[in-house]
């Protein structure tokens, strides 16, 4: 087959990043939007770890950055879910387009 090099990881992460971006733009479900953001952060992590493996196994800066990105990404996700649940309590909808006004009466 072929030799797996840095460039393959970079392509993979670029594709994953773009899928995440696409998900943020096109989804209507807020939960799916938050998941797509996590895809973007994971793509960035792949980049960092791949660069660290191929260029910088001495200082391991990429690994450390990946840890920080993970911690902060999960923190953002948790806050996002908390706010999502608050929105759901108010409007009984998790629609990113905000079409819930007629349902407010219904609840």
């Amino acid at each position: 087959m072929f030799d797996v090099t840095l460039i393959h990881y970079l392509f993979l992460s670029a594709v994953l990043f773009c899928v995440g971006l696409l998900g943020v733009i096109v989804s209507r479900h807020l939960l799916r939007v938050l998941i797509s953001v996590e895809f973007m952060l994971n793509a960035v992590n792949i980049n960092f770890v791949a660069f660290s493996n191929y260029n910088d196994l001495i200082r391991l800066d990429g690994h450390i950055m990946a840890i920080f990105v993970m911690a902060i990404g999960v923190c953002e996700l948790a806050i996002g879910l908390a706010i999502l649940i608050l929105v759901f309590r108010k409007t009984h909808s998790v629609d990113a387009d905000g079409e819930y006004i007629e349902e407010e009466k219904w609840s």
């Binding site: 479900h29 939960l31 999960v74 649940i85 909808s93 629609d95």
Partner: peptide
């Protein structure tokens, strides 16, 4: 961790609005 978090979020918002939310 995140999968459990997401599962909880689905549980809270599970009884979603009648129409399915798919694409904008």
């Amino acid at each position: 961790g995140v999968s459990i978090l997401l599962a909880f979020a689905i549980m809270f918002t599970g009884k979603d609005s009648p129409k399915s939310l798919y694409l904008t």
